[in-house]
Design a binder for these strands. Sequence first.
DNA 1: TCAAAAGTGTTTATATTACACCCATGA
DNA 2: TCATGGGTGTAATATAAACACTTTTGA
Lengths: 236, 236
Amino acid sequence: MYTYPLSSRILLAIDCIIFGFDGKDIKLLLIKRNFEPEKGNWSLMGGFLKEEEDLEAGAGRILHDLTGLTNIYVEQLEVFGKINRDPAERTVSVVFFALIQIDEHDAEAVKSHNASWISLDKRPQLIFDHNQMVDRAIEHLRYKAALHPIGFELLPENFTIPQLQKLYEAIYNTPLDRRNFSRKLLSTGLLIDTGFKNNNSATKKATLYRLDTIRYKEKFHAFWNFMPDAMKTPQS
Amino acid sequence: MYTYPLSSRILLAIDCIIFGFDGKDIKLLLIKRNFEPEKGNWSLMGGFLKEEEDLEAGAGRILHDLTGLTNIYVEQLEVFGKINRDPAERTVSVVFFALIQIDEHDAEAVKSHNASWISLDKRPQLIFDHNQMVDRAIEHLRYKAALHPIGFELLPENFTIPQLQKLYEAIYNTPLDRRNFSRKLLSTGLLIDTGFKNNNSATKKATLYRLDTIRYKEKFHAFWNFMPDAMKTPQS
DNA sequence: TCAAAAGTGTTTATATTACACCCATGA
DNA sequence: TCATGGGTGTAATATAAACACTTTTGA
């Protein structure tokens, strides 16, 4: 069998951007490293691809290690491959973009990794090129959420329209008109009324909806054009 | 300095999907391999990332080798990393998506690589997972061209509206209404009348336009919503 | 003078925006 | 009973879609 004798092998890392939503702010799951290198500094959760492991499986493993969850929404975001991005050794990192329901994570696992949920506007400096990775992920979140129904991935199974609106307002950092938002959302046909009401509110209780998962899959790749026109200047 | 003694190094490949447009069909630049492995079979143009080379530089090098061009429109598409995708050895491939102006390539360079421009519907089976890569790239082309003004990257500097329409009809494999297409396009403000007319036509000569590169850059990230609604079911 | 392709305008339907009032709840 | 947040309707505007005739050209 043919082999490739002349080419050099490179260390392949996986880094995960993990977004959550606490009902008010978009948060990132970051770790304060209690291991080398860069011990004591903040970074994304990551690891190295194993020899006997597919790329997506590697991302799944790393995400499961930290959160205890499987079936997380994950996509490849971008590969970061600058020569000196890791001062220790040439390392190419495949960055994954994950959205999780913040209240479902395993708090023990998170704690044992010395990880915390941190609001976007309070995030510390991160090691290496992880800041750029996060910037890129935020851009991607804004872009993708305007075109595809991914917002739901950040909410619990049953959610209210005002909750979803707060999520979008947090993503785009802008207020939205309640009436237009609600109409547009309901007109997608993606929401099913559970018949229940939200109990959290001290005032009028909001209707709890759930996703129509069939239509969600059908409509996922359709363009949504969800944000008002003024917001339409994100990227790539 | 810290190193990563326990992790395994992996061969990192770069594969390039290169699209062109000949005025009628979307074409792919593919190579009939006159080297091992898989000699005699068709594949994408590719190579291995060098130790002293950034990822994007590697893609640029491979694209330049084959086409003689620099300043090609390139983006990262996706990383393919299944364990056994290359039977010779574990190889992870970063796939790049490139659009070129077909008449500007260096025919000699292409010939010396045993490469040819092949219409999408006539493409042969490719080695390894290169068929999936191409499928993914076609999806991406349809998706991206509906939202961003990338079609121009496939046309000569001066082009006519009917040429651009034929390009979009080729991408989406569907006829478009000339009047609506033209109005929508001109309303973007992206086109500048060169004052010249196309001489190719045996009938009425079409106006030659060029891109307003300033506005092109400004508007690149704005959503375009360019294709009619019926077409809006591509992906990711 | 005729065939082939370019250029343009209007009407209709649909989607988006802006905006204000009433309702339910528990403190 | 009042403050807070939830729910809904309508009119004006903008955008998109469907559709047909006139112009230019060179064979």
